[in-house]
Design a protein around this nucleic acid. Structure first.
Lengths: 337, 337
DNA sequence: CTGAAAGCGCTTACAG
DNA sequence: CTGAAAGCGCTTACAG
């Protein structure tokens, strides 16, 4: 084998090795059905032999489409996107679309807006799984779905989200059903948190007891949960149950409870939201609400494919039902409480 | 404005709008210094006005380089890559390289190997932040650095890792220094875990007490930590301190301790490894070892840039010093213990 | 199925 | 700086 420094094989090389035309190789690449089995095999074997990999750049430039969907997430540490990706992937698999993921800091050193990379890449569609900012102008005609509830809206984009209000009602009703009356809610910023707070208020007002909603320092981190819970427990000692806007805040609430000598769930019930990986740990055993993010991803894929196919219709909002996941952090209040 | 359905502006459009030649636009795009300030401004303004975004496909195809580095991670849930990315980004920023991230499942529906996407993309370099598999054949000449200790090696690749053995020694010496003698280590699979176990054994044998190392079910999850710690605490009740191969396992150990009525740190000290986001929560306050992943990323960027520039030399292994982070989960053993 | 041709939007190299 | 040209590796469309 002569050393061929660096020149990657092209369809031309593959065609020659397989003894077919370049056109045929291109047909195989795009999975055309009008290729005989024998020739297809020959081409695939030649590709494997030459270690051929199609140039994404060339096919993107020549073709009308890149067959890739960009997914913009908030922060790699907010793991809710993991299941979203799984559902998206399953929905996209049959169409052979690939996925590209970025958060807003990933290429902040080379691009002005986090969307720039995806647009330069000429993605066929976009999933925005973060709070849309004003800088996020997307070309009209590009299929976009916003995943999850947000404060801002993207014109022309579909929204696919968990029914946060319903989930919050279910969480609250779970606590009410256990017999709790002194129930507090820990809230934070963002569209989802706002809806969850509303769902909490609805369920509470339907049941009677005065709802008490307390924010941390404005966000929805563990620290916020800790601060909010500390405030709640100190100001309202009659509290026997806490509903946090998400699992991370619930984790902070657990710390605040422990500091006050309150055992969970005997002295205090705690419920989160999201069913994130930490919720199912032995340490937390956190009762929570499963947003069914994989289903949100699958639905997002569906909306995207419909728009790409041209039959999208007007932008809509799809709400999916969340599900209560009961674990060890909630129990009836103590008889004396 | 006539509706121009869908055709994205090209350098041709920009040139015309700015009243310059296409060549000049290309020079501005690539940041050439031989362009007058006036013309550069005119071009940039035209780009902004037209909402122009360079086609990544076209520049990749025409140019010799894509100016992007691929980063292959293990799983989005293993957050150690987050800081790695930050360091990588800082190191790459001055060179204007962008980053593309994927885990091995992201495009499993369209490609055989997780590296295929990056190779089709013709990345200029690769960071492998996961256990290399046999399927990961990389073209010779492509700059590759393996980040973190692994079982397998990639021929020709540099390795940049935290000195796991040293970090484990420091963790163990911290416990020894507090006065602990009954110290157990929770281990799991992978190159890093093996080195951490070795560092533990070294520090223990230098100090005297018999080291006890126990695995969970083979991996390094919270469940593994829980199982391993349960085993350890039941079989060796004289244990007063536990060193887990990582923070996640330490979290499991905390659960096992709580189940046995052991308070942390009064009855049992627990130390982890990685300084992951959970370690600094109020709930865990976990003493741990900071791998300095951002520095690993920065070093990886440096190695990559050197190889891209052609002065890489033979593949090497760079080991960075970890740092002990003392929090609330470790303390001296109780006098009676 | 093949073959020849044009073109995607850039970069490169060069004469002016 | 401009302008004309070639080419990157594919896809597309079409005549055979």
């Amino acid at each position: 084998m002569s050393s061929r420094p660096h020149r990657a094989p092209t369809i031309y090389d593959v065609a020659q090795a397989a003894g077919v035309s370049k056109s045929l190789v291109s047909l195989v690449l795009r999975g055309s059905s009008s290729v005989s089995e024998a020739r297809r095999t020959a081409v695939l074997e030649a590709m494997a032999r030459l270690d051929y990999r199609p140039s994404q750049a060339a096919s993107a430039l020549a073709g009308a489409t890149t067959r890739t969907i960009g997914v913009l997430i908030d922060d790699y540490r907010n793991l809710w996107f993991v299941e979203l990706l799984r559902g998206l992937q399953e929905g996209l698999a049959e169409h052979g679309l690939r996925i590209a993921v970025a958060d807003h800091t990933l290429n902040a050193h080379v691009e002005a807006s986090p969307l720039d990379g995806f647009l330069s890449m000429r993605v066929d569609g976009l999933v925005i799984a973060t709070e849309p900012s004003a800088a996020m102008r997307v070309p009209e005609g590009l299929p976009v779905v916003v995943a999850g509830h947000r404060q801002a809206v993207v014109p022309g984009a579909d929204v696919v989200a968990n029914d946060d209000r319903l989930g919050a009602r279910r969480a609250t009703e779970h606590l009410l059903g256990l017999g709790h009356r002194g129930i507090g809610h820990l809230t934070g910023g963002g569209g989802a948190a706002r809806l969850r707070a509303e769902g909490f208020a609805e369920a509470m007002s339907a049941a009677g007891p005065a709802p008490r909603t307390v924010p941390g320092t404005g966000a929805t981190t563990e620290e916020d949960g800790y601060v909010a819970a500390a405030r709640l427990l100190d100001e309202a000692p009659e509290t026997t149950a806490v509903f946090a806007a998400n699992d991370t805040m619930a984790m902070g609430a657990l710390a605040a409870a422990r500091e006050r000598g309150l055992r969970v769930p005997q002295d205090l019930s705690v419920i989160g939201y999201d069913d994130s990986p930490i919720a199912s740990t032995h340490l937390l055993e956190l009762t929570t609400v499963d947003s069914r993010n994989a289903r949100i991803g699958a639905m997002a894929a569906e909306r995207l494919m419909a728009r790409i196919a041209g039959n999208g219709g007007p932008a809509g909002c799809s709400l999916l039902s969340p599900e209560l996941v009961v674990r060890g952090s909630t129990a009836p209040p103590r008889p004396g409480a």
